[in-house]
Structure formats: C-alpha cells, structure tokens
Design a protein around this nucleic acid. Sequence first.
DNA 1: CATAGGGATTCCAGTCAATGGAAGGTCAAG
DNA 2: CTTGACCTTCCATTGACTGGAATCCCTATG
Lengths: 128, 128
Amino acid sequence: MNIGDVAERAGLPAKTIRYYEDIGLVTPQRAANGYRRFREADLHKLTFLGRARSLGFSIEDCRALLALYEDDSRASADVKRIAEDHLARIDRKIAELSAMRETLSHLVRACSGDDKPDCPILHGLENG
Amino acid sequence: MNIGDVAERAGLPAKTIRYYEDIGLVTPQRAANGYRRFREADLHKLTFLGRARSLGFSIEDCRALLALYEDDSRASADVKRIAEDHLARIDRKIAELSAMRETLSHLVRACSGDDKPDCPILHGLENG
DNA sequence: CATAGGGATTCCAGTCAATGGAAGGTCAAG
DNA sequence: CTTGACCTTCCATTGACTGGAATCCCTATG
C-alpha cells in the first residue's frame, strides 16, 4: 500500500501518517522509488493510533499503548493504568470546563444584549 | 509599577505580561532605564485579561472583549455574542469529552487489570 | 568603591500534534 | 509527450505561553 491507500483505510491524513513515522510510531518500508510501502500490520497500527487519539490519549500514551499492543506478554494492568490516568485527566478537564460554563452562563443570562453599553459580562470580568 | 508588581497584583506571570505586550494587548510606558512602567489602567486591563483567559476565552476573543471594555459606546449585544459563541464552544468541548469518557470508562470497567495479557481496552482500540 | 542580590531587559528555542505550502520526483493514462 | 494524480522532503505556522541564556539596572552592605 502507498500512503494514500493506508490514509484512506485508516481514516488519517497522509500528512499525519508521515508525522507518525517521523516520531517513530510506525516504520513503513520503502519501495525502490522512495515511496513508503505499508503492510497490513502498519495499517492495523495506524487504525489503532487513530482510535486512541480520538479518545484523547496523548501521543506518548499512544506510544506506550502501542508497545503493549505489540507485546504478547503484557499485563492488562499496565494498559488499565494508562487508561485510568487518562480518564482522570478527562474528568478534571470536564470539571474545569463545567466551572467555566457555570460562571459564563450566569453572566450571559444577566446580559440584556441590546445596543446599550451597560454589560454584566464586562462587569464580571472587571470585578471577578 | 514595574512588571513584578503588576504581575503580583494581576496574578499573572511577568513572562505572560511581556507576551501580552508583544501581541499588543497592553502597551505600558517605558521608564528612562528601559523598564516597563505600568499604570493603574494597565493593571485593570491585565486583571480583566486574566479573568477572561481563566474563563477560556481565546486571546483573540480577549482582544475583542478588551476593545469593547474600553469603548464607552459599545453595545452589550456585541459582548454577549462573543460570550455566547464561547459558551457554545465550551458545550461542544464538554460533549466531546463526555463521549470520550463514556467510551473509555466502559473499556476500563471491562478490563480486569491483572497480570494477564488479555485486555478489552486494547481490543476496543483495535476493533473500534 | 566594590560587590552581591534581586529584579529587569532582549532574544531564541521548545511545547503539542499536527497542518499548510513550496519545490520537485514518479507513474499511469490518453 | 503531456497531463494530472500521486509521492517525496523540508520549512514555517498554529496557540498561548514557558524556559533559559546573556546582559543590564538598582540598591544595600562591607
């Protein structure tokens, strides 16, 4: 497979796949003309990466998950720890956004949104 | 005020304040020795910026909000529109994270987390 | 007066995870 | 032979800072 084919099948931009090779997540072979040549195993890895990234795992998490994915003698506890840590990060992020949402929605609700300058939103930003 | 004082009072790192000057959000005066000299109005702006940033507004939103803040003939509708747009972005982000959380927590719950290689998390990443 | 410290200055590089674009090489079809 | 779709590498940019180096300024003490 050339990069275009694997990109389509993995659902990732070719550019991203080149980047993943750059940082050592995949190591496709090369054809005589210099083109990358991807095998089925590469496609599996890229699909795996796409899914992990879409769940918000960092590239470094993905690297670790991929290593475990390829390691037949892994302990599922190692995978679970990474996933739980990430879940905790997600929860913290949601909490942070919810707090923002809470504050901001109060301000928005208080603002008449007309052509007059008086504005509770600006007032809130000014005075905490 | 020197940058250290205004940094402390605004609750922002000095480095961030220099950056904000760099991108034109504040324009402190300069003393004869080259030090930045901040007035009370600068402090207000920086405090305003800190609050807006902590609510997740982008720098460009902050720039627009600051312009409205300084414009006595503003319409509160303009402020409200920016805030509502941002609120919608927050909601989308929360929804996205919640979806990740949902998927991931299912996988985590299904994983025994022991020393055996069998792992529903990896399986889920492999097969969608 | 020398010096030590704490603060200030500028500039450059790095973060994260790509993404955009330029300049050029390769290949299959018509 | 040319066209157009692919592919290649390399460099720059994104957002919002943050870290660090090298240097300068000010004040206080010995």
